[in-house]
Design a protein around this nucleic acid. Structure first.
Lengths: 301, 301
DNA sequence: GGTTTATGATAAAATAGATTTATATGAATT
DNA sequence: AATTCATATAAATCTATTTTATCATAAACC
């Protein structure tokens, strides 16, 4: 069986017209007829027939089923070609969600700049879901993703490179600023400024709320960490952020969470299970991991 | 590109010997040489070479990558063949975990027996994980699976057909038997007989424990619901079961859980996303769903 | 109502592709 | 040095795919 026959067939199911498909593939019309015949012989069933009045094509159950699988196979072939080309790549197509980019990768980038590898990281920004889809489609080589639990899907796997704690941030004049740590259940009456849906933060926040059987009020949601911080700074409410997204310059008071087990913000390096990296890319990845390692050491102090 | 070339190649990577592969496929040895050449031309890279001393085959990075994808594609082709054959099937290969079989499906089976369709349900017993893998491999058409959250994976999807509540069961002489309902956090001191790992019950139990921040003692774990029941009946401990797995004949007292939101035991009909059913199978599924529907009505009273 | 047009099927010929047979090559083994 | 093992290559053969040319059928047009 030839891949090409599956491609002809899939196109035929889509456009339901032999002549058009033949033109698309720049072959003659009988080529398509014969391709269908071959597939029908191969699987021992009719795949399509023309209805009595000759007006349109009818796809049999078997035809539908073959179409499903043909689509999968053709996608895999495309992935193969993309991956094979990529094995000579000197750049790494690198997915990065905004917060991780701003508050974590930027720090590694300094180290990567010093050894001149940074220009080979071709960064693509996007939300986690979007980046996961790009990984699966072979449009990205790796992505740094944030999650509340370790990431695993059928096709994508991930290596955890950072575990960050969540913190409560408050304005210096907020009464809580006197403390250095709080238990989440003591925040039942607090008013929160929260990151928007799509971030891991509201998911973890919801989880903490459920476990503690409280429902703290969320008075505002934003997509932008700096908006959140400035609102917290104005003491409009208090914030729930990961340690790395807070810097000294923010002039905010940071409180630890006393809850055990502490919720963890995992930063993972995600990639497609079947994807291999070129030599150059492997070196880039080692550099990245080394930078992450150095960063971790510096922050242990 | 022919599928056969990919099959030759995958086999070659496995056995690393041209002659052996040729024998496996009952073709001559040069056929394998040429197949590799064709693939190398197609992808524009070397895939394998013999090392200097001619002793063994070395697989290039590209060869490894192609092997990964070839494996996927060949698996999909096998699935296709299996699915195509199955479209004329009059039987439904039906996965059933033991508890759902014993305490739920058996009741539907009575209805299915009355209209004579039951003999077309070819039941396969096994744990949820095992059944999920069989679904993905095309060895099963559908499976009834129990879960604490709705089921979704990349390749398998599921339709919820029942939502059952969890109950606490106690011996008639147990003090709790005076009540009709309990809140889980009041069971902090209780001793539980629990179903073993692999069942959904211990997962839900753990979850309830976490939310209520208590840690009730589990004094015994068993794989067998009837062992659990008889131990509860002997008042060795109390039990945590779904409503359907308890019958009047058990002579146990059943308490509702007061917790909100109530944990739910979902029973779902799971199947591979790309799998189509034969006419006969569709009718069997309708029968099954009708039986489930009737059962639900009878139990609403 | 006959003619034209659109859409596919089929036959036969042409072309392309895969496999085999026979033989060569090169290293390891005896 | 001769033999064996493992693979490559050339040429011939066989097989499969595609094309050209033509036919069939229903619909659209005049």
């Amino acid at each position: 069986m030839k891949i090409k026959d599956l491609a002809y067939f899939a196109a035929l199911i889509k456009v339901k017209n032999f002549t058009t498909v033949a033109e698309q593939f720049k072959v003659s019309q009988p080529t398509i007829s014969y391709a269908v015949k071959r597939l029908e012989a191969e699987f021992g069933t009719k795949l399509i027939y023309r209805d009595q009045s000759h007006q349109s094509l009818v796809i049999t159950q078997s035809g539908e089923q073959l179409y499903q699988h043909a689509t999968q196979i053709l996608a895999e072939i495309e992935l193969t070609r993309a991956d094979m080309l990529n094995l000579n790549a000197t750049d790494l197509r690198f997915g990065l969600p905004p917060i991780i980019g701003t508050y974590y990768f930027s720090k590694l980038a300094q180290k990567l700049a010093s050894n001149g590898t940074i220009q080979h990281f071709k960064t693509v920004n996007g939300g986690s879901k979007e980046l996961l889809a790009s990984l699966e489609a072979g449009e990205l080589d790796v992505a740094l993703l944030g999650s509340a639990t370790p990431l695993q899907t059928d096709t994508v796997t991930a290596k955890i490179i950072e575990r960050h704690h969540f913190k409560i941030v408050v304005a210096p004049e907020n009464p809580l600023a006197q403390k250095t740590a709080v238990a989440f259940h003591d925040l039942a009456k607090a008013k929160f400024i929260m990151l928007a849906e799509g971030f891991v933060h509201p998911v973890v926040f919801k989880n903490l709320s459920d476990i503690n059987q409280i429902k703290p009020e969320i008075i505002y949601r934003t997509n932008d960490v700096s908006v959140l911080k400035s609102m917290v700074h104005e003491n409009v409410g208090i914030g729930f952020l990961t340690e790395t997204s807070i810097t000294l310059a923010d002039d905010l008071v940071v409180l630890d969470l006393l809850d055990e087990p502490q919720p963890i913000f995992y930063i993972s390096l995600a990639y497609r299970r079947t994807h291999l990296f070129s030599q150059a890319q492997q070196i880039l990845l080692e550099n990245l991991e080394q930078a992450a390692h150095d960063y971790r050491l510096e922050h242990k102090k």
